[in-house]
Design a protein around this nucleic acid. Structure first.
Length: 501
RNA sequence: CGGGCUGUAGCUCAGCUUGGUAGAGCGCUGCGUUCGGGACGCAGAGGUCGCAGGUUCAAAUCCUGUCAGCCCGACCA
């Protein structure tokens, strides 16, 4: 009926970026809103991406000596009170459990039974430093018990007022690493090591360039001595914090009595770290690569590398075409990409060809392969790459199979290069407040600004007015003398500033 | 927590001012024509109009209450 729009997603990124984002999530079948406010249902295609993220990160955690464990969803309220800054940071967004039984309400329906009120309320974990720290305090007695290197895959709840699919939801999935060390140096090294792991994953698996850096005081995790993050730039030139790694010093160890006897027999407090990434990574993935036709997935995280679409005009042609597709799939699956078999799906659903094709475009599958009777006869396939757009081309079947791994590798690199180019284009060095204001004016596109600064209330106030945030001080920043653009005070390092999610 | 708005089919919404047998588009089912392509025609399924009460011969429509959600602000790792 209605002529299809020029792009598969309306509006386009240019027209309305936030709305485009929502439509991509929907069109790609990643997730949908649920009956619970602020919580989303992650659908199979979206969850499969998360499973790939999990599998690859998990291997990296294990390779760096960590083990998985699982701690309770509930945390006694008193635990949160022990670290003063921690309470302040999270108290305002906690879900609280106060009863353990329901009963019929005289006025109809159900109500929490007054007789089943908990003596001490439980909070649903917004993060697990306190409950895990309390557990660790029992695990550690001697320096010989250290280090403890634990990771947990879990869900957490933060009662945010404003939610957005994947980027900020009330409940979200993540991993949280928690480690205990005998020295500050070792704990700091762990913090930096995990930051490197995150950056490696973001750049190599997600094809998303990131800046590794340290957060300013105002952006620090509540209770941490130092917070490091990886920061990515989205296509709308807003920054996204994609992962954090915290050096907690002895703050949590003191609050939770994590102490041990050192070799000389003295009882001392331990040094702890924590680090995490969440389903927010999927939001970053979407906003880094996707285009006006929907999701674009880097091959390393795509639930399927190749979607094979059989095409036949009638049921006489079906058996030959399907047999050819099955054989093709078998050959492709025998190929390897990044030490794993190539992932292939044949889509033989009884759906019109054009619609089926566009569904796979919108879902971001890296390679779409169409096989019709003419291809069967000629020993060819019609293949289209998602990353470069265009309609695709007919290629020899054997060539396609032989080159599949190289093609996927090339796509992964192409996506990274493109994202890096976008970031480069949007990055500037600024030495003057007026220029800074102009760069972040409402009418300007914005981006990443590297500026000299001195952290403090004056800077915070200026930034708030401009709706700009200090993202981080890059860990590889080279020292150079300059002046804080906000206060004029001397500075020897540049920080990165941007509007942010 | 303050201000504004909305609850009607699976989805997006019209109808309400002026009460009188519940509507459209998309989606879904079937048949047909098309088809290396997000097509078209015909037929069909699907709703106690958020909930409770009131006014009335008669309420999706008017009144009262209530619940839920959305937007702006505030707030926000």
């Amino acid at each position: 009926m209605a002529k299809p729009p020029k792009t598969a997603i309306t509006p386009t990124r240019q027209e309305n970026y936030p709305e485009w984002y929502q439509q991509v999530v929907k069109a790609a079948d990643l997730a949908e809103t649920s009956d619970v406010r602020g919580c989303m249902v992650i659908k199979p295609w979206g969850y499969a991406i998360w499973e790939n993220i999990q599998r690859q990160l998990d291997a990296m955690f294990k390779a760096t000596g960590h083990e998985n464990a699982y701690f309770p969803l509930f945390i006694p309220m008193s635990f949160l009170e022990k670290e003063a800054q921690h309470v302040e940071g999270f108290a305002k967004e906690c879900a609280v459990v106060t009863h353990h039984r329901l009963e019929p309400d005289p006025e109809g329906g159900l109500r929490p039974a007054p007789s089943a009120k908990l003596d001490e309320p439980l909070i649903v974990r917004p993060t697990s430093e306190t409950i895990i720290g309390a557990t660790f305090s029992r695990w550690v007695q001697s320096y010989r018990d250290l280090p403890i290197l634990i990771n947990q895959w879990a869900n957490v709840v933060r009662w945010e007022l404003r939610t957005r699919m994947f980027l900020r939801t009330t409940e979200f999935l993540w991993q949280e690493g928690h480690t205990v060390h005998s020295t500050a140096e070792e704990a700091e090294q762990e913090t930096r090591q995990m930051l490197d792991v995150y950056a490696d994953f973001a750049e190599n698996s997600m094809a998303m360039p990131v800046i590794k850096g340290e957060k300013t005081a105002g952006e620090r995790f509540p209770g941490a001595v130092a917070t490091y993050s990886i920061e990515a730039l989205m296509q709308d030139r807003k920054a996204l914090q994609a992962g954090t790694s915290h050096f907690l010093g002895q703050n949590f160890a003191k609050a939770q009595e994590i102490k041990f006897q050192d070799p000389s027999g003295d009882e001392v407090y331990a040094w702890t770290t924590s680090w995490g990434v969440s389903t927010r990574l999927i939001g970053g993935l979407i906003m880094t690569h996707s285009d006006d036709d929907g999701l674009v997935l880097p091959p390393k995280l795509a639930p399927a590398h190749v979607a094979i679409l059989p095409i036949y005009r009638n049921y006489d042609e079906r058996p030959d075409v399907l047999a050819y597709c099955e054989a093709l799939k078998k050959e492709l699956v025998a190929q390897r990409f990044c030490d794993e078999p190539v992932r292939v799906r044949i889509d033989d659903r009884d759906v019109r060809g054009g619609e089926k094709k566009w569904q796979w475009v919108k879902r971001g599958v890296p390679l779409r392969v169409e096989v019709g009777p003419r291809d069967v006869a000629a020993g060819k396939v019609f293949a289209a790459r998602r990353d470069v757009g265009g309609k695709g081309e007919g290629v020899d079947r054997n060539t396609f199979v032989a080159q599949i791994s190289a093609t996927l590798t090339d796509m992964q690199q192409t996506l990274y290069d493109r994202a890096a180019a976008i970031r480069k284009e949007a990055t500037v060095t600024i030495d003057d407040l007026g220029e800074f204001e102009k760069f972040f004016a409402d009418s300007a596109p914005g981006g990443l600004a590297y500026c000299h600064f001195v952290d403090g209330p004056e800077m915070e106030a200026q930034l708030k007015k401009l709706k700009v945030t200090a993202r981080c001080v890059p860990v590889d920043a080279e020292e150079e003398s300059g002046k804080c653009i906000f206060t004029g005070q001397p500075s020897n390092l540049r920080g990165v500033f941007a509007r942010a999610y």
